[in-house]
Simulated assay, not measured.
Amino acid sequence: MRLPFLFVLGTVMIDAMGIGLVLPIMPELIVEVQGGTLANAAIWGGILSTAFAAMQFVFGPILGNLSDAYGRRAVLLVSLFIMSLDYMVMAVAGSMWLLLLGRIVGGITAATHATAAAFMADVSKPHEKAANFGLLGAAFGVGFVLGPVIGGLLSEYGTRAPFWAAAALSALTFLVGLLVMPETVTANTLRVFSLRRANPVNSLRAIAALPGIRPMLWVYFLYSVSIYVYPAIWAYFTIERFGWSPQMIGLSLGVYGIGMAAVQGGLIRPATRHLGERVTIIYGMLFEIFSFLLLAFLTNGFVALMLIPITALGAVVSPALQALMSHATPNSQQGELQGVLTSLNALSMVISPLVMTGVFAQFARPEAAIYLPGAPFLLAMLLMFVGFALFLRSRPVVA
């Protein structure tokens, strides 16, 4: 099972690259295609990120339910094939509308995180789930490293070069999957596809009806909205506050991704073994609250770079939350649960870029009554605190 395991982790890495790849080049790309100021580019960046996330919200449950009905293998392979073609379109796009179309298709094909997580649930024993979900998070972190680093380095050859590299990598991963990926859905766990349940709202209702799950879903959502402040405004914030170049932005995001991968791939296992999933989540959320407060008022770029590994310590929260909810979900609904989590994650990516870039644009304008480019981090801190308080009151029930 080692090669299929690596293939699934590679697919998650490619999904993460779809987010991170464009971050260092997005301000320059938007100004190149659309013109205007950096503040206006931030608004368009929020729109593109929102389109990407909206498709993940809609298609996360659809792909999760399809994988419960037709298998994980087919869903992952078809998505990778279409993703490769989409990157090629993005590489030649000459208008904002074609870029928008590319992000819409990219959001659909990157909604396979639910299917990858369902595969992990299929092959994991109960005590292994948090650690294996952590490996998915680590793969996401590696993709988040490679995406900005590739985007930053290849920006030397133009704003389109990173898309050609991503297209080639997606195609290569697809070919590997054809050779090594087995099917893990069995006759005992197969569930007939229902378009009604594939609707994100109906899937959410079905999962929220499980004992103790509803408040955990709210915690996961608030955590996700908060944490997406980083991809939403980091490039714009660091240009405005520190005057960073695309290469420096890519490096900083790479440092964060390495820290995130180290935490979710390594720290999550001993943390949940010694502290338990619940205490691990509490410590992780406290780290995030503290990090947001520091970043909001930081004015030194070197200190910001040194702070990044500390902010990554909060990355233990997501896999531990997934594990708690997976324990409370029947085996026949693991794909549906992961689809719901993908939708909530995507919904947060719809809301967070629009809200955070809007707040940034309001407080980063030269004529702003209060000049505070770090204001979005204060909003993220407040949302994280609400989620933290809600988590302290929640008690999931093991299925």
Rank of each mutant, 00 (worst) to 15 (best):
V398H: 14
M90S: 12
M1T: 05
L66M: 15
L178T: 05
A323V: 00
T112G: 08
P376A: 01
V229C: 00
T357A: 15
M90I: 14
F163K: 14
A93V: 14
L101G: 00
F81E: 09
L153G: 12
P330I: 03
L390V: 09
G10P: 11
M306R: 04
M83I: 04
L98C: 05
L66F: 14
I213M: 08
M90N: 10
F385A: 15
N202W: 07
L77M: 11
A389E: 13
E156P: 11
E336I: 00
V145G: 05
T280S: 12
I43H: 11
P246L: 02
E183G: 09
A399K: 11
A235W: 00
P231A: 02
M120H: 07
M248L: 13
P396C: 10
S252D: 07
I25D: 03
S170Q: 08
G314D: 04
A323Y: 04
A138F: 09
F174M: 09
L48I: 02
L307V: 06
P211M: 06
A117R: 06
L3D: 09
V316I: 15
V22A: 03
I19E: 02
V225I: 02
A130G: 05
A53V: 08
P200L: 00
F242I: 01
L23W: 00
L293V: 13
P231T: 01
P373Q: 01
M260C: 04
T311N: 13
L23E: 01
L210K: 06
G276Y: 11
F287Y: 13
A117F: 10
T311M: 13
F363K: 03
L390N: 08
F5I: 12
I108P: 15
L6Q: 10
L80V: 01
S318P: 06
G102Y: 05
A323L: 06
P126K: 08
P330K: 02
R103T: 00
A304K: 02
M356Q: 01
I289Y: 07
Q334R: 13
A93M: 14
W44M: 05
R273C: 09
A380E: 14
G266V: 01
S49M: 03
A110L: 10
S49T: 00
V92Y: 11
L372G: 00
L6C: 08
I25S: 07
G358H: 03
I104V: 15
S79V: 07
P309I: 00
V33D: 11
G143D: 07
F237L: 14
L101H: 06
H274V: 06
A69D: 05
I62W: 04
